[in-house]
Design a protein around this nucleic acid. Sequence first.
DNA 1: CGGCCGATTATCT
DNA 2: GATAATCGGCCGG
Length: 197
Amino acid sequence: MPIITREFYNRPAIVVARDLLGCHLVHSLDGVRMVGMICETEAYQGEEDQGCHARVGRTQRTAVMYGDPGHAYIYFTYGMHWLLNAVTGPVGMPAAVLIRAINALEGVEMMTVKRPHLAQKRGWLNGPAKLTQALGLNGQLNGHDLCEPDSELTIESGIIIPDEAVSTSARVGLNTVPEPWKSVPWRFLADLEKVSA
DNA sequence: CGGCCGATTATCT
DNA sequence: GATAATCGGCCGG
């Protein structure tokens, strides 16, 4: 599958979040390709978005979001979890798409080793921290260029998810975020049953 | 199945 | 010193 180009990411986060559904997240580790199809995302965009980390402006942590689109923003939260985002454009606009769930396609054996809990059971990769654990991702790859061919972390085009298989809702976990940001429908989910049907 | 709660530490004020 | 884009265990139904 071809790698997604920087132009794809150089668009508003809400649009990129929708279009990342069905794409293939690829982490190559020790010569093994681990691949998952993205089936849930969330968009975070702008300093005015009170759900976005960049609401406090540019800091050491948020700097990546202000940079080139098509890079990984990987941050640590709740004292134990790493979460993966794709930075979206344009340069200077702090924005990113959180990858919230994937469907295992390749390298399942290695993913099982990295995430033994409920391995290969229903729901074992449907959470932003679950999939980073399964893919072996952490702060090491923060700022990594996702558009570089043959690099260890990339996103490839997968299948097109038709509109009728896409649903939206409020973003998850923003309990202390004020309205309207708490409720904007910037979470995107792919219903895989409607895709195959 | 759904709701509540504790874990554990980088990051920012 | 407070907070957090979460998870898994434990409870009740």
